[in-house]
Design a protein around this nucleic acid. Structure first.
Lengths: 219, 219
DNA sequence: TTTTATTTTTAGTCCTGTCTAAATATAAAG
DNA sequence: CTTTATATTTAGACAGGACTAAAAATAAAA
């Protein structure tokens, strides 16, 4: 269908479009793909020929609906494979990216349909990023502080606000890591402290902790 | 490490070396890979440069130890992925080859180590072909008629001797298919009939049936 | 609004892997 | 032991993707 290089360009451009609205510049693409601007121009012209994006000289590019479809599908595959690697093969969440970069280019609709089912149709990958469904629909998500969640809401840990050794050690001890799902079981009004569940364990955390942890939630 | 094309050539040459002893001819490679002899000559010269095979003009090629190692590793990956596709994703054994052709080129030692473990270190793929271990050691196997097995031996169904509709229907009814493991639980001397186990079921089969079914066994 | 700096594009080259057409070896047949 | 057929190799070309160096636009500064 599409070559490996084409898929990688479309994916990179898609990510850049997410980060900032409007056209994506040649230089931005080159930097994000660790390649030269002249190579980008070449490829971008080919992709424009194929109607996967619109291109105006010196103005940058924008994906067409078709181009987006291809990009999102690659991202879907990438994230599903990451779930497989972590959930089934017990990789750490930070070890899987390179392998998923390869697996995302395997061509077979049926394979992905079955893999998705095998994994229980997950909504998020191990980094907390949402997995598009087979029609390319990306669940809209929002990054908030854990402290902003209400009782009975949940989110996936995606990053920390201020990082310091002791805090990271605390997280480690409590088995809180990127990609881990956190359920808010209860919340006290007067001090903002929470009771949360992480994996099988449930425990108490202070407002100070909850205020230093970013989670991704469905909108 | 090696390119996709290089891996495919080494794999094809390895299979040809298995089929017939001695050097492998340019034309044989071209035919098996559905490419032109001139392309084969080009690639073969590059592989000789890299010491993956020995090449004498007009005489054909032979893999070196290093070349064999690479080829066997690709075959190991191919067969492990086939097991995954059939056992975990519920593909039929005859639907998996194309997908495994792609998956076999994914580069990651660790991935294969873990995949192997996840699958329970299988000895055979769904077609009944043996899976090399991580050191490249291929279990020596032998293809025999089921009727040649003794009590308490087992084999993997790999093909039928004479095919006819009724026989295939019988096999279907009894859930005997390519890749299925058959255990011989008992054997009668006077008529050669057997009691076998296939999956959870155990039942009786006549000598006529046992004589028409090829199984792969460890040597 | 010139001048300068930055971004982007073009032109030409290279490498991989393939092909066709032509040349050369080897094998088979007379 | 020539002639003919077949197998193999070389030479030259091409497509995909990338690069360098130089030219052309655009943006920023004076």
């Amino acid at each position: 269908m599409f070559t490996l290089a084409e898929e990688n360009y479309l994916k990179a451009i898609f990510h850049l479009e997410m980060e900032s609205e409007g056209e994506v510049s040649t230089n931005a693409i080159a930097e994000s793909m660790d390649t030269k601007p002249s190579s980008v121009t070449d490829m971008v012209q080919k992709l424009a020929e194929k109607k996967l994006l619109t291109y105006k000289r010196y103005k940058g590019v924008q994906l067409t609906a078709e181009g987006k479809k291809v990009a999102v599908n690659v991202i879907r595959k990438h994230r599903l494979w990451e779930v497989f690697l972590v959930e089934k093969l017990n990789f750490q969440w930070d070890e899987v990216h390179e392998i998923a970069e390869q697996l995302e280019h395997i061509q077979s609709e049926e394979l992905i349909t079955r893999l998705d089912k095998f994994l229980g149709s997950p909504d998020f990958d191990p980094h907390g990023d949402p997995i598009p469904d087979k029609h390319g629909v990306l669940k809209r998500t929002e990054k908030k502080l854990l402290s902003e969640l209400k009782k009975n809401q949940s989110g996936i840990c995606v990053s920390v606000k201020e990082s310091n050794g002791e805090f990271l050690q605390y997280l480690n001890k409590k088995k809180i890591a990127i990609g881990v799902k956190i359920y808010v079981l209860g919340k006290e009004f007067f001090d903002g402290s929470m009771v949360i569940r992480v994996g099988g364990e449930q425990f108490f955390i202070s407002h100070k902790i909850a205020e230093n942890l970013y989670v991704q939630t469905q909108k």
